[in-house]
Every structure is written in C-alpha cells, then in structure tokens.
Amino acid sequence: MTFKSRILNADEVRRALTRIAHEVIEKNKGTQRLCFVGIHTRGISLAKRLVELVERFEGQRVPMGILDITLYRDDLTEIGLQPRVRETRIPFDLNGKAVVLVDDVLYTGRTARAALDALIDQGRPSRIYLAVLVDRGHRELPIRADFVGKNLPTSRSEVVKVKTLEDDGEDAVELWEVGET
C-alpha cells in the first residue's frame, strides 16, 4: 500500500469534531436523552472526544457506550477465520435515548447496518443518528450519515486511514492506494 496524501491534520480533525459536536447539540436541541456509542476501534476514540466537547459546550456529561459488531457482519464467510470479538458495553438504558453512533469512515454502509442491529438488540432508542469523521462514498446499502466531518470522493482502490491519538499516536486522516507494486 502506498501513501497518497494527508486529507486532514490534527487541527482539522479537531475542528471537524468540534463542528459535529455543535451540530449534534443543535439537532438534538440540547443534551436531553443524548448519548454516544462508539464502534470499535476508532469510533470509540472519536466518541470519547465528542462526549468531552459536548460537556465543554453544554456543561452536561452525556453517557457513552462501546459496540463490537464483529459477529453481526454479513460478510463473515468472506472475511473469515479468526473473528476478533471485542467488548460491547452500554452501561445505561438505551430505551428512549437519542443515540449518536460514531464510526471513523462510512464506506459501503455494512458496518453501520451491523451496528444498527447490534444496538437494537440492546434496547429501543427513540432515535439513532450516525456520525462519521469521513464519508468516502460507494454505498452498497441505503444508509446515510447525519453528521459528517469530511466528504471525500474516493476510488475503490484507495484506502482511507483515520488515525487517532489514542490508537495511533496522532490525529490525522490519510489517503492510501492499494499498491500494484
């Protein structure tokens, strides 16, 4: 895989998340019944940031959960052998909540579809939003994001890498090409 370009640097990631936090508060008309659920792995780091930003702007700390969707995927037979199942922990009652699902990249929509099923298995939120740092297009399912950090037209041979301070040592969004070399 070869590096092509840096799409967002740390400051730009911070600004995108700040804007998303404001949009969430605006759309939800405050923090009433609001909560965040991050999808493993980088969605969790991004959800933590959003919880902190919302607290800074509104003075309210809203609850947060984490979601593993591995065994909910519809392509298990293709991806295969060793499922990497991680923790699902939603330490509050989802019933009646306005949930913001957080993921790093929205691509085919299959992860988001699986996340909706995994979430609904845990309770009945009154509403579910989807927030992503990057929407790179190429949807295979009728799914869209409510909050998007950056719309990025890509080709299928490209890979969008989201890096976070917690997982990768820096905040950035990068575009890579699946190398023929």
Binding site: L71, E87, D121
Partner: peptide, 13 residues
C-alpha cells in the same frame, strides 16, 4: 466468552 458476558447473549453469526 465476551458474547456470553453481554446482557443480550445472542449474535446473528
């Protein structure tokens, strides 16, 4: 084991 520790012990795999 992780799945069995969840409140909803069921996945669609």
């Amino acid at each position: 084991q992780e799945v069995l520790a969840r409140p909803v012990k069921k996945v669609p795999a």
